[in-house]
Amino acid sequence: MAKVHVTTSVNGEEREVLCEPHQSLLDVLRDELGMTGTKEGCATGDCGACSVLIDGRLVCSCLMLGVEAEGVDITTIEGIANGSELHVLQRKFLEHAALQCGICTPGFIVAAKALLDTNPDPDETTIRYWLAGNLCRCTGYDKIVRAVQDAAQELAYEA
């Protein structure tokens, strides 16, 4: 099967990639572009570990084909920090001990960023329902929710 040439933007940088028509965006990111920060937990869209932003919208990269990335802007966990300065969500996840094993963390941070980008002042219920597509088996979610609440508060204070 002929590979397909795809031009896309990953974290603000134009990238060209040859991908198999059957490859998911997740596989293209991880295997073709070497960006392994985005994780696979299920490959069926149930766990959110592979969360990325496509033109600012939260997407499970395992449910999108690589060839569909032509011309879009992709944001992955590797693009969340501003250079060497951590995003407030990353800082708050660390300060609140909102990760234990850390495999779900990239997906949670990307998903939480998508929330705060559109709703800077979410209440606890909104946070819990927004993040319901991201599974964490270690933390019981308590510290994750608190980290997102605290990040929202700091962003509001800065604004």
Partner: peptide
């Protein structure tokens, strides 16, 4: 106390290498 873990930054930036990340 509850300081930030030494491996924390790698795990919130996607830099940490898990089982499937080696090529």
């Amino acid at each position: 106390t509850s300081p930030v873990r030494p491996d924390g930054v790698d795990k919130v930036t996607g830099r940490a290498n898990f089982g499937a990340d080696l090529n």
